[in-house]
Design a protein around this nucleic acid. Structure first.
Lengths: 91, 91, 91, 91
DNA sequence: CGGCCGTCTAAGGATC
DNA sequence: GATCCTTAGACGGCCG
């Protein structure tokens, strides 16, 4: 950990003066946004927990959301290919 | 499986009723949150684009962020390990 | 690494006499089996690479294998539930 | 997409021909390897059962094995990091 | 039987 | 631009 910090600071220092601040700013903004992303993931998880409590099948709900996100043509294509392979296997 | 069937029938019976609204609400809330997540991902990407324009090495920045994220986790893990070893020794 | 090995040996020694050897044996046998598992995973990956080269859609092949692994009743049930939710949403 | 369509048609044309055999072969080989993998997982489980019977703490053993596995990876990562920093510094 | 853990899949990024 | 690899998310099995 000490060694890592040393390397990081060494590096920042090497970029020189103002650029080091710029780098720090970039890193902190990204970290902040990632935290927000993580928080949203938690919210989504909560909703699924609620859904499960209400008796819904979470896996199927995920499937619905996935379908709504896809182009109908995409769905069709995958299903067609699946059929073709199934026929080839005599299933 | 008995419980599942019960829930499933419960649900189909409610189509057009309150449960359908509940299902719709769940799905739409999740989709909304996923959009926000996606937007945040876009913001992060923008910052990296900016960083690159400023002459920084994006890959290096990513690695630094990754490090800063895992350092606390490693400290945590070491403590856990210590506990584990002590318990293994019957202390 | 040195410190870790020290801890591990410390631990083994502390379990006392024969038990330490027993512990070492257990660990080594598990590690050996995990290596074999990993090797098999590599073999599977190779087959998929071959499949891709032959023009097959790997994702669909995975889907086929998944289906063959499931009980037909299971597949049916999932699809039924999907239909029910779709109707509830007017899709 | 053009390539995909081409491949898909290629495949459907071959149903009942050589490609179908090829597909079947691929699937069966993968399934066979997955069975072997599953068998090894069973063997590992047996060893842990034995360990538990001998009075060992299975969770601790798992943690030790995990540690032994990730140590080399961490060394590797440190070297990678060093390279990255050196490149970032133009060395 | 609900949460936890490990594995497996799929998407995004890096590399050539 | 295609492939490879890493990473995050989803899934199933295991344990408590």
């Amino acid at each position: 950990m000490n060694a890592d910090n040393f390397e990081a600071e060494d590096k920042s220092a090497a970029v020189g003066g103002i650029a080091a601040d710029r780098l720090r700013s970039i890193i902190e903004r990204v970290e902040r946004l990632e935290e927000e992303r993580k928080a949203l993931a938690g919210d989504i998880k909560d909703i699924f927990t609620e859904a499960k409590s209400a008796g819904f099948d979470v896996k199927v709900i995920r499937q619905i959301i996935r379908l709504r996100k896809q182009e109908p043509a995409e769905v069709e294509e995958q299903e067609t290919l699946l059929d073709i392979y199934r026929r080839a296997l005599g299933m």
